[in-house]
Simulated scan of single mutants.
Amino acid sequence: MDNTWQHPHRQFAYFQLRSLHDWLWAGLVISAAAYVFGQYHALMDGYEVAILLATAPLLIWLGWSWPALKGFNLTVAIFSLLAISLYGGDLGRADSAFLLKYLFASQSAIMWMSALYVMATLTYFGLLLSGREFVGKVASCLTWSATAMGLTGLIVRWRESYLMGADIGHIPVSNLYEVFILFSIITALLYLHYEQHYQTRGLGAFVLLVISAAVGFLLWYTFDRHADGIQPLVPALNSYWMKIHVPANFVGYGAFSLAAMIGLVYVLKSQARTADPNGLLQTRLPDLALLDDLMYKAIALGFAFFTLATILGALWAAEAWGGYWSWDPKETWALIVWLNYAAWLHMRLSKGWSGKPMAWWAVVGFFVTLFAFLGVNMFLSGLHSYGEL
């Protein structure tokens, strides 16, 4: 009798524990989703409506689970809506409206993102050297600010593509320029979540190095290849699958990159433990047990999303090219990445492997993933040739 009563009680306890701010957040998200549907439902197909309906409860849950995300999302929403309102229906206002030209036009926001991520990287290294809490808070604020500007840039770029023409408009995850921005944002958000959850900023200098490297590529790609221009989609990409396959893929890439940097920190700290037990790395970096646990969680998260992305990619391929799998170089290397991390998790869960060997494996896995992400586009060609450099 008691168990029967307690079971539904536990089911509703989660909702009963929500604060007024949580319910205000839920109402705001639902209102925003209703507004988007009311304004744009005539332009949306059934799949896009389904994505919108799934996004609203996801945003509510994320805001409830990670309160800092509420303020972040509200900031991005305000910046994006301000930029969209400043544009009106005239793309040419990007060069005349002050706030667009210097802050919120997509290219301006992305340049701010790039500068702030580099500043955050340097500040995290300053924290590593000084150990001062204030320096760490500044580094975190810079990372949050960079991520907000990057996401604002992507959202405004989405609107800009439609201002260029209804036949050109598309979600901005269609080429290397756009997905490098997405990669930076996702990797930063994953890191910031772990930073807040575990109350440690010791990993920031190393994780932000990966993001700064992505920013360096992005800047080269922008100024040398002029890749920041918005182009119409190639026919194969003109699909609702792109809206879910690409973000899922890059949650995987971001998590794998985070795991690699954690693995690098693990190796450095384990070596410092014997070579210099009272040195900087030994005293300022997180404990080895925490690093090992974080590395496992990052790889498990990345593997789950990468598996989902691979399944979605196969369904997309069947629709676009008539077959689920064609051994295209991108598909083949995606399978290699999947097998690599499947083996890592198998050895961790079934054999109990941990420590330095698994850390080195995570680091090596990063280079395998990097080749699948970028190297295939540079050196190989195939059905995914739209991503070539």
Score class of each variant (00 low, 15 high):
3 N>P: 06
4 T>G: 13
5 W>P: 05
6 Q>D: 13
7 H>L: 14
8 P>A: 07
23 W>T: 09
24 L>P: 05
25 W>S: 01
26 A>W: 04
27 G>P: 04
29 V>T: 03
31 S>R: 05
32 A>K: 01
34 A>N: 07
36 V>P: 01
40 Y>L: 14
40 Y>C: 08
44 M>Q: 09
55 T>M: 12
64 W>L: 10
67 P>Y: 02
77 A>W: 04
79 F>G: 00
81 L>N: 03
85 S>M: 10
98 F>A: 13
103 L>R: 05
108 S>W: 02
108 S>C: 08
108 S>H: 03
109 A>V: 02
114 S>V: 06
114 S>E: 02
117 Y>V: 08
117 Y>L: 05
119 M>P: 02
120 A>M: 03
125 F>S: 01
131 G>F: 06
133 E>Y: 12
136 G>F: 03
145 S>I: 04
148 A>L: 05
149 M>I: 01
166 A>F: 12
170 H>T: 10
173 V>C: 08
175 N>I: 05
176 L>T: 10
178 E>A: 06
180 F>L: 15
180 F>Q: 08
185 I>D: 03
188 A>Y: 09
189 L>W: 07
190 L>T: 04
192 L>R: 02
195 E>V: 06
197 H>C: 12
206 F>H: 06
209 L>F: 15
211 I>T: 08
212 S>W: 03
214 A>S: 15
216 G>A: 13
216 G>K: 05
220 W>M: 14
225 R>I: 11
236 A>E: 10
237 L>D: 03
239 S>W: 04
240 Y>I: 12
240 Y>N: 14
242 M>Q: 14
246 V>Y: 01
250 F>A: 01
251 V>P: 01
255 A>W: 01
256 F>Q: 02
261 M>Y: 03
267 V>G: 01
268 L>T: 08
270 S>P: 04
274 T>V: 11
277 P>R: 12
279 G>T: 04
280 L>M: 15
280 L>H: 10
284 R>Y: 04
289 A>H: 13
291 L>E: 00
294 L>I: 03
295 M>F: 02
296 Y>Q: 09
301 L>I: 11
302 G>E: 03
303 F>K: 00
303 F>N: 00
306 F>S: 02
307 T>C: 10
312 L>I: 15
319 E>S: 13
319 E>P: 01
319 E>M: 11
320 A>H: 05
321 W>R: 09
326 S>Y: 11
327 W>G: 06
331 E>R: 01
334 A>M: 08
335 L>M: 13
336 I>Q: 08
336 I>A: 12
338 W>M: 07
339 L>S: 09
346 H>P: 04
346 H>V: 08
347 M>P: 00
348 R>P: 03
356 K>A: 15
359 A>T: 08
360 W>R: 05
361 W>F: 14
361 W>A: 11
362 A>K: 04
362 A>T: 07
364 V>T: 14
367 F>Q: 08
367 F>M: 10
368 V>I: 15
375 G>M: 07
376 V>D: 01
376 V>Y: 01
377 N>Q: 09
381 S>N: 14
382 G>H: 06
383 L>H: 12
385 S>E: 13
386 Y>S: 09
387 G>P: 03
389 L>H: 10
